[in-house]
Amino acid sequence: MAANPSPRKRRLKNAPATVIEPAALISPSELGDAARRAAEEILVAGQAENTVRSYRSALRYWCAWAQARYGQALALPVAVPTVLQFLVDHLARGPIDQPVCELPPAIDELLVRSDFKRQAGPLKMNTVVHRLAVLSKLHQLRRQPNPCEDPQVRQVLSSAKRAASKRGEIVTKKTAATREPLEAMLATCDDSLEGIRDRALLLFAWASGGRRRSEVADAIVERLAKADGGNYSYRLHRSKTNQDGSQAQPDKPIRGPAAEALRAWLEASAVTEGAIFRRLWKTRVGPALTAESVANIVRKRATLAGLEGDWAGHSMRSGFVSEAGRNDIPIGDVMAMTEHRTVQTVMGYYRSGELATNAVGNLLGQRPRPGTATPE
């Protein structure tokens, strides 16, 4: 004899079937609005802080330019003629000392006055390329037809790059802090708490492989380990080329003068956890430095040392690579420290340093080897 079903089973049996309207279904090939926004947020959260800031700045400018140029908000997908107009409005033409562009002066002045542009006139080629890349990325995220991939747009940009090269426009690089300028900066650091911090910061950034300013700002005590001989090693959890920290990287050694300076700072500041490098309020230690603060410290020390050049946080990174080239350090060892992903990226600085001390750069100053014939 079958047992009577439980009240719960009877309720389930008698319950009406749930009907899902076809209109409520989402095609597997498309993301719903909520899922798409969530995906965009994840993508943005996975980017470095500086990258996110640059994306926002670029999109802010696109919106301001469209409003000023056409009197209406920027809407996706952006039409190809609009992108072409953006290019001719901002790409430089004419001689290098008097470049011109097609952006009407009244609109140009408005964008400057509204703090969307730093100065009137054409934008640098790198800036135009970056803003086009950001617009392209936005169209990809929104699954919209991408005007930046249009053959006309690609052709105009390619021609503009060649014209810029012929005109003598060069890509500017931050001045490299090789050994001599680094030592000059260190000489400006006294025994005050600020001096002790800045000396440790400069040496940490340089000696641990030319760390990026964001990596210096994010450095924490918990990833610092003591090593033999009073030295340290630092485990870089994530970097620009390893955003999710999934790729195992060797610990970065901090040795000699860099280790001594770091130990002096930790003792003087009494920092035992959290951010290593911090803001100072007179003699009081505050919260972590920002990436921009790290760059400002480099600029400040370069100025105090009387060094000419365009100094920034990146000067530590380029200086480390250039100095390694000067000392014939194998490129593989350099990349293990810097975590550059491609040889092409690091080679420019490395070769500059290498050629600076190589005999090939001073052939006229070399004496002919004995027995070498002199051409008549």
Results as ranks from 00 to 15, higher is better:
Lys117His: 09
Ile196Phe: 13
Glu308Leu: 05
Gly94Thr: 02
Gln119Gly: 12
Asp33Asn: 05
Glu41Met: 12
Gly121Ile: 00
Arg317Glu: 14
Lys252Phe: 05
Gln247Leu: 12
Ala2Cys: 04
Glu169Ile: 01
Arg212Tyr: 14
Pro16Ala: 14
Ala177Glu: 06
Asp191Trp: 01
Arg326Cys: 06
Cys189Arg: 00
Gln344Glu: 15
Asn14Val: 01
Gln366Asn: 09
Asn50Ile: 01
Asn242Lys: 02
Asp97Met: 09
Asp198Leu: 08
Val153Arg: 01
Val100Met: 13
Glu102Met: 13
Leu202Tyr: 06
Leu91Val: 02
Asp218His: 13
Gln344Trp: 03
His237Pro: 00
Ala35Ser: 15
Glu102Asp: 15
Leu355Phe: 07
Leu135Ile: 00
Asp310Met: 05
Lys137Trp: 15
Arg131Tyr: 13
Ser6Asn: 06
Gln247Arg: 09
Met347Asp: 13
Leu76Pro: 07
Ala23Pro: 12
Ser158Gly: 10
Ser208Cys: 14
Asn242Tyr: 12
Gly309Pro: 06
Ala17Ile: 10
Trp311Ala: 07
Ser57Phe: 07
Lys300Pro: 02
Leu132Met: 14
Tyr234Ala: 06
Glu215Ala: 11
Ala38Phe: 10
Arg279Val: 05
Arg317Ile: 07
Tyr349Ala: 13
Arg197Phe: 11
Ala58Val: 06
Glu267Phe: 12
Ala120Thr: 04
Leu193Thr: 04
Arg301Thr: 01
Ala207Tyr: 08
Gly274Pro: 06
Leu363Met: 10
Ala275Asp: 07
Arg10Val: 12
Gln344Ser: 15
Ala24Pro: 07
Gly230Val: 03
Arg10Thr: 04
Pro181Tyr: 02
Ala261Cys: 07
Gly46His: 02
Glu41Pro: 02
Met1Ser: 14
Gly195His: 02
Glu109His: 10
Thr303Phe: 14
Arg37Thr: 07
Ala35Tyr: 08
Gly46Asp: 06
Arg154Pro: 12
Leu76Ile: 02
Glu49Ser: 11
Leu266Pro: 04
Arg341Lys: 15
Arg211Gln: 14
Leu262Gly: 08
Arg213His: 06
Val271Ala: 14
Lys13Leu: 15
Glu354Val: 00
Ala295Glu: 04
Ser6Asp: 10
Leu182Thr: 00
Asp190Asn: 12
Leu91Trp: 01
Phe116Trp: 07
Phe116Cys: 08
Ala264Val: 03
Cys148Pro: 01
Asp244His: 12
Val128Pro: 03
Ser352Trp: 00
Tyr70Gly: 03
Phe116Pro: 02
Ala373Gly: 07
Asp190Ala: 12
Val78Leu: 14
Pro250Val: 03
Val80Trp: 09
Ser239Val: 01
Thr290Tyr: 04
Ile42Asn: 13
Ala3Pro: 00
Ile196Pro: 13
Ser29Ala: 14
Asn14Lys: 10
Gly306Gln: 03
Val294Pro: 08
Ile329Ala: 14
Ile331Asn: 03
Ala24Ser: 15
Lys137Met: 15
Gly325Gln: 01
Ala79Trp: 03
Thr290His: 03
Gln249Cys: 12
Arg37Ile: 05
Gly365Cys: 09
Gly274Ser: 10
Ala270Arg: 08
Asp244Gly: 08
Asp190Lys: 00
Gln243Val: 09
Val83Ile: 13
Ser318Pro: 00
Pro375Ser: 10
Arg143Glu: 15
Ala268Gly: 11
Ile42Gln: 14
Leu31Arg: 10
Asn296Leu: 11
Pro16Gln: 09
Lys173Thr: 03
